[in-house]
Design a protein around this nucleic acid. Sequence first.
DNA 1: CTATGATAGTATACTTTTGCTACTTTGTCA
DNA 2: TGACAAAGTAGCAAAAGTATACTATCATAG
Lengths: 223, 223
Amino acid sequence: MTESEFLSRYRSSDYPKPSVTVDTALFTVREDALQVLMIRRQEHPFQGKLSLPGVFVGMEETLDEAAARALYSKTGLRDIYTEQLYTWGSPERDPRMRVISVSYYALVPEQSLAPPEEPALFCPAAEIAASGEIAFDHSRIVACGIERIRNKVNYTDIAFSLVDEEFTLPELQRIYEILLGQKLYKANFRKKIAEKIIPTDHYTSGARHRPSRMYRKKPATAE
Amino acid sequence: MTESEFLSRYRSSDYPKPSVTVDTALFTVREDALQVLMIRRQEHPFQGKLSLPGVFVGMEETLDEAAARALYSKTGLRDIYTEQLYTWGSPERDPRMRVISVSYYALVPEQSLAPPEEPALFCPAAEIAASGEIAFDHSRIVACGIERIRNKVNYTDIAFSLVDEEFTLPELQRIYEILLGQKLYKANFRKKIAEKIIPTDHYTSGARHRPSRMYRKKPATAE
DNA sequence: CTATGATAGTATACTTTTGCTACTTTGTCA
DNA sequence: TGACAAAGTAGCAAAAGTATACTATCATAG
């Protein structure tokens, strides 16, 4: 039997299949806290509960594309920093049927977001992670996202995804402190990120204290 | 409409669904190299090529259970250190049909493995990761596993999963060196892992040099 | 037009970890 | 009993991380 013969005889409908969704946790830092975009469900199951934005994976799209689609439909944003988190496959996680969920997390600066409308809202991520009142296993997904972010802050540049293109060092430091959940020393923080940033000749103004210089992220050097 | 009415009307077959598999990369350190268990495929597609052990996810099992099943069927081992890696969902990754693959990696000490038979064999992981001759996207899965292991070696205890219950420090150090791809200083290495191990009163013997003390891993302390 | 409060930004001392070299110990074997 | 071989230990210098004290510059009040 040749490969093409084999392929033409293969009947994929011979086996039962689970449904596959992509659920996305969009994080931002707002009001001095890490917050996550949640949707209040209008339909069953879990009607009235909070859930993450999600879509069924189309037959012709990649998982990354499905995640981008879910995020775009709720925020209108493209080209967000997005990364796959974990895949959840317990047979009981959805009461309708067997659904396997590939979860993603995404990071955006608060400034690039329009205030969410109607069934969508931002919630403190820590509260969602600790709550027992969240639809499906989405509380665990958020918890998983928080943990992943916290782990990656120190050895990657994900924190820059949460500030605008131009930012001040006190702003950036605040992001780090919120993600890590601890206070950092100003001087040490600056030493550490000095090599990752480029100063501009812009300064903040208006505040009744010394203005803060603005910086940009240095483009990643080739490997 | 109540929730139970809603559920009874829900027709999950209304939507096309991808198939879902679990593919597992079983790593061990053998002959001074990180090696991975591969299967030479007997059937189409990719007949004759190397692939990772994989199974279709059953409708009543979790993903972790499917991974354990795949590993058990090839090695006869249960309770292996196993962790989910990444989920691969490109529509073209399987020529038969749309298949989404949830990949796992697993770590076992060489001593606990029977020599693999027939279509199964161990291959140097770096070669698999670099080869263009591997079935599906399994080469990338192995590459992803190597990277994950390398990242986790320094801030977790996964290296201990690759040695027997009792081990010598030169053995353990060799594991670290192979995973990290670099030589370590004996004294520094010992200082660092001193807190994670418990000495036994056993020693190696037979070699024509000073015997090496054997240790066990200290049970993880409560969080 | 100067004092003050508030935050931006810098200099520096101290502590811990890492990188490295040299040494001592203890077994087997000739 | 001396030589080799790898196990195991001691210690120093450089680098990185931790912590504190200081100076700079704006807006506003008086």
